[in-house]
């Protein structure tokens, strides 16, 4: 005996009607255009489209293009000149990597030290990085994390699609917000969003995400060269230093200018090793020397502190194993493919 329930006539009729409607949709537009919800003769749409919009002369087009990328006014004071500087990106509460960076950068003869922002999140004991930064006279940019904490936002505003990512982002933001004193938060509030620094004769613009947006991600495989040349034209700079995306990279552009994402101290570069990254910029006979530099530090001690603070095992696994485990959806196809998760 078959245990299939026989379709009743109503179901059969509905199914036939669905198929007929689908067939009708597939041929509905023969000779017609869809103008919003209306069906109109193709010629009507084409004529209306041809008449819409503006058509500039070649000279006007050239002027419009130049205006789009015209140099912005920027009153940011210029620091330097220096022969050599060291620049770190997001620290994410990783005070042990920060301490290692300060030692190494001094030993390497850096005349000035910079941090491009995102002091908190992810790691343990948020307040510990503050005295290290102040005592070493590190010049700090304001990242999106500092912006959120200083303005009392309730979350880091990452807005992930994956509920799991939102869970971890909220958890680390709330942990950091609880662990920062109001004095520390006020200090974050007065940090500048951008700095200009001369290394030799090269003028570098230091920002958190991009010169346009504090929370813009600049990833190597998701940023065209044309875009970077445009940014540098607008900023009238010889190079841009940024962080925020978490992965270090450098591109020398056809114009001879540079984009350097200095990476982050806060967590490894999704490469299966526990080391973190920073950048040294130095004046050379032919312009700017860019050295993206790996840094070993006592990651086991950090992992132990994270455990004692009750931070998620997923974060600790990243510190120990070098693979990102959370907030992965920001990665472009190629960078995502290089990681384990």
């Amino acid at each position: 005996m078959s245990n299939r329930v026989p379709e009743d006539d109503e179901v059969k009729r509905e199914r036939a009607a669905d198929k007929a409607a689908e067939r009708a949709r597939l041929v509905a537009h023969r000779g017609l255009a869809t103008w919003g919800e209306k069906l109109v003769p193709l010629g009507d749409f084409r004529r209306a489209a041809a008449e819409s919009g503006s058509v500039l002369t070649p000279a006007q087009r050239a002027a419009a293009g130049e205006a789009l990328l015209a140099q912005c006014e920027d009153s940011t004071p210029i620091e330097g000149p220096y022969d050599r500087i060291a620049v770190c990106g997001g620290i994410y509460n990783n005070h042990l990597a920060l301490a290692a960076f300060l030692d190494r950068a001094r030993a390497e003869g850096a005349e000035a030290l910079y941090c491009l922002g995102d002091l908190g999140g992810f790691g343990p004991s948020p307040e510990k990085v503050w005295p290290l930064l102040v005592d070493a006279e590190v010049r700090v940019n304001q990242g999106n994390y500092e912006q959120s904490l200083a303005s009392g936002r309730e979350d880091c505003n990452c807005g992930y699609t994956d509920p799991r990512d939102n869970h971890f982002a909220r958890l680390s933001y709330e942990y950091t917000a609880r662990g920062c004193s109001s004095d520390f938060k006020s200090w974050m509030g007065q940090l500048p969003a951008r700095r200009r620094v001369l290394v030799g004769d090269r003028e570098l613009l230091l920002v958190h995400g991009s010169p346009r947006r504090v929370n813009e991600f600049l990833f190597e495989t998701a940023t065209s060269t044309a875009y970077l040349e445009g940014l540098l034209d607008q900023e009238g700079a010889d190079g841009i230093l940024c962080t925020h995306s978490g992965l270090h990279w450098h591109r020398r552009l056809p114009s001879g200018r540079d984009l350097v994402n200095v990476g982050v101290l806060g967590r490894p570069a999704n490469d299966g090793t526990p080391r973190v990254w920073y950048a040294v910029l130095e004046s050379t006979s032919d312009g700017l020397g860019v050295h993206l530099t790996p840094l070993d530090y006592d990651h086991q001690a950090l992992a132990a502190e994270m455990r004692s603070e009750g931070l998620p095992p997923e974060f600790i696994a990243t510190i120990e194993g070098g693979w990102w485990t959370t907030c992965l959806e920001i990665l472009p196809a190629k960078e995502r493919g290089r990681g384990r998760f």
Binding site: W35, G36, F45, A48, A49, E51, S52, G53, S54, V55, L56, Q60, R61, A62, A64, G65
Partner: peptide, 12 residues
């Protein structure tokens, strides 16, 4: 929407 058209080249 024909009114969504802004020009022939990007610069327009």
């Amino acid at each position: 929407e024909p009114s969504g058209k802004m020009g022939e080249r990007l610069a327009d």
